[in-house]
Amino acid sequence: TNTSFSTTAPALLNSTSNQLYLHFHTDISVVAAGFHLEYKTVGLTTCPEPVIPANGIKNGDRYMVNEVVSFSCEPGYMLQGHSHMTCMPGTVRRWNYPPPLCIAKCGGTLYDMSNVVLSPGFPGNYPGNLDCTWRIMLPVGYGGCAESWLWISCLEITASNAFVSPLFCTLHGFADIHIFYYFFLLAYELQNCQDPYPFHNGYIINSDFNAGQSITFECFPGYVLVGHHVLTCQHGINRKWNHPFPRCEAPCGYNVTAPNGTIFSPEYPNEYPDSQDCTWLITVPHGHGVYINFTLLQTESHNPTPYLNLTTTLLTINKQQIRIVLRQK
Rank of each mutant, 00 (worst) to 15 (best):
Y126W: 07
D176H: 09
C154M: 13
V164A: 10
L185G: 03
A211N: 08
L118N: 07
F180C: 09
I103T: 11
E147P: 03
T133G: 01
Y126A: 00
S153L: 10
F174A: 08
T158R: 11
C87I: 02
C106N: 05
C154H: 14
Y77S: 04
T86C: 02
I205T: 09
V117I: 15
Y77T: 00
E189K: 15
D195G: 04
C169F: 12
W95A: 01
G141V: 07
G121A: 07
N115L: 12
N192K: 07
G108W: 11
F183W: 10
Y188K: 02
Q191M: 12
L118H: 02
Y181L: 15
C132F: 06
T158K: 13
G90L: 11
I157P: 01
L186I: 10
L185I: 15
W134H: 05
N115S: 15
G76Y: 03
P120K: 10
S153V: 06
G108T: 09
F168L: 08
W151D: 15
Y197L: 12
I177L: 04
Y97V: 08
V164G: 09
G81V: 04
N192I: 11
T86N: 05
I103A: 07
F209P: 06
F184C: 10
N96H: 15
D208S: 12
A175P: 03
M78H: 12
H200F: 14
L101D: 00
C87V: 06
Y142R: 04
F168D: 15
P120Y: 11
S148K: 12
N192G: 07
D208K: 08
K105M: 09
I205K: 04
G121D: 03
P100Q: 00
A187F: 11
